[in-house]
Design a protein around this nucleic acid. Structure first.
Lengths: 205, 205, 205, 205
DNA sequence: GATGAATGAGATTTCATTCAT
DNA sequence: AATGAATGAAATCTCATTCAT
């Protein structure tokens, strides 16, 4: 007999639960948000939620996964059509710059994302996975651009790609943090400032 | 009933409780840490804790206060003896750079501090207080240096002190975040890199 | 809606469900076994199970029925071909004795059977039914033999058939209980011991 | 500082909880009785119960312990003052015989005790412990008497003490089971019947 | 008739806070 | 003031039963 509901349906349902959970985590924080909150928010019954996820922890892990993956996919796609390394780097700065003005939803997402990251730092295993993924996806995104730029002679050859990559994400995480907690933080201007500092440095001979 | 113990005694007791609480929050996170954990860590009884603090929330707020204040006092004191703006700015960069290698305790403190900040972003009132304090203490620390440096002709006059200050703290928070979650993050090198970028930019004519 | 499947089919399906349920009850106990366990064991879907049984309780009652009936049918059939009362009584002792060594499945059945009996003692109605059935089937089995034996002069006439019957089942239930919970219990030897005591007593003049 | 409450107080409280739990288990069965039942029955709050016991399972284990221990203590004490082996054995039979007529409370206790025993058979570890304890306390009680009786020439020397002991408990458990589930079971008469069979057998030359 | 996803009452357990000693 | 036992609201999770497909 055919399965009662399609895989498609199940995927959609999972998405709905995750969306509701994310909204709740955003509004209250991961620990403070309760399953009942998620029920109220998503309109999906408690039992149903537990049909799709073994525990609240699992929901959190799945969200963690989902966020990194979708962020990464978005970034890689957008970059692939540009040709010069400088354009690519500039594009990344501009991409993050142009997120502002932040919608409440984006602010919430960022807050949750940062909370997730900090929370994960207490679980050795999780921490390792996140760091590996960070290295593989986010750092690599920049180091690849750097290496291309150095081969093409766009960037000075003695710049360490890893340090530039580290600087980029250090700075972006800091900027998003400040923007999330402070309405008046001059997010766009500061990103442009850093972009100029970095690009000028890389193009020095 | 007239107080039987001295103010001094009370202050000491509060300190002990706060120290235990910080350790718990660091190890487990604010929400996950229980009053019983604090009892276990501080060696002070549950009832006594409630004699000194109205609630777990209040302990958390007091810790928040304590941290910013002590950090700020430390910074201002250390800076006051330096004379040139460049030295002061460099000193600040070096101060944060030389925090590394992080002790477990410092890592814990930073994690908690960041969690506090994020958590606070959900409470409008708290958020306002934190931002004002940030402006008054941390941003001002840098803008004062910037203005001195510009008056003294050390820094180019068209640099916006607010932006430099914003950049500094954005970057430091980002760096501490990354260092807290990633053992292999090249914290010192990246701070030096940024220090050079910023100082060279400010000293440009 | 007119029934679409044969009675035969239905009976078979019910049997399958009951077999799965018995296995689950045996492994986990009646309360602890879930409908999902029965689904897993029987391979029959949850919905289908509820097509055949109104509730988990009903499954349990049906199993109870089934067990007593089949046990009784087996006993009566086997006994009917023997002629002397002594042979019959001896046959019953031997029948139970030769159940050992117990297969895991038989041990499970016995455990469940005993649990059922105890559980039933809390439901007045159920308790009455079980006791009546016990009297009608199990006690009667022995009292009939006793009476035949007394009429035939095999057994001493002043033995009370009811007491002998009571002793027999008291003892058998105790022996099965001990055997079910204790691998090392000398089941066969003890049954033989009791058989001899009882038969010698009955054959005394 | 002195402890807030005495050890005596704590012990008393634990006893109260256990008494309430036993009553609930007796009334509804171990699995079916809820913590809320125990709260309602004992008048002790849910939180307090969890201050004394880690889990419902632990309450059950403690009860199990308590029952065997107290039963054993009672038996040994009562027997120690008798001198001949025959008297002792007879005393044990009479002790169990004279439990009847059973109070509702005793019936409940017995039902729970048997349920516990059956339930424990599913946990290998627990099962081992119970069997060892059974061997050490209950079987030994009888085998010791038997050996004394054989040395003193009261009992025939070729009777196997282990088998007599097994028979005794097999029979007593069976009798209590039947008595617990059947009001009309001729408990006293059957025990006397068995007592006579056994004693006569043992005294045969 | 069969399926298994959905439901939600109810179970166990936790924990911030209170309060008698 | 200090203690830690008591409280009970609230959290997480389970599972018998229903019902749309």
């Amino acid at each position: 007999m055919a399965p009662i509901v399609s895989e498609e349906y199940k995927r959609k349902k999972k998405k709905e639960i995750l969306a509701g959970a994310l909204a709740c985590f955003a509004k209250k924080g991961f620990q403070a948000a309760t399953i009942d909150d998620i029920v109220a928010y998503s309109g999906i019954s408690k039992g149903a939620i537990y049909n799709y996820f073994k525990s609240k922890e699992e929901i959190y892990l799945e969200l963690l996964n989902e966020q990194t993956e979708s962020a990464n996919a978005r970034l890689e796609e957008n970059i692939s059509m540009l040709s010069s390394a400088e354009e690519k780097l500039e594009y990344l700065f501009d991409l993050y710059r142009d997120m502002s003005p932040f919608s409440q939803e984006r602010k919430d997402r960022i807050t949750v994302q940062l909370e997730f990251t900090l929370h994960s730092s207490r679980d050795e295993n999780l921490n390792r996975i996140l760091n590996e993924r960070g290295k593989k996806f986010f750092l690599k995104l920049i180091t690849d651009i750097m290496e291309d730029g150095q081969i093409a002679g766009e960037f000075r050859p003695d710049a360490d790609p890893n340090h530039v990559a580290g600087l980029f994400w250090t700075f972006m995480d800091g900027a998003m943090l400040h923007r999330a907690i402070n309405e008046e933080y001059p997010y766009r201007t500061i990103i442009d400032y850093v972009k100029n500092l970095v690009l000028q440095d890389l193009k020095k001979e």
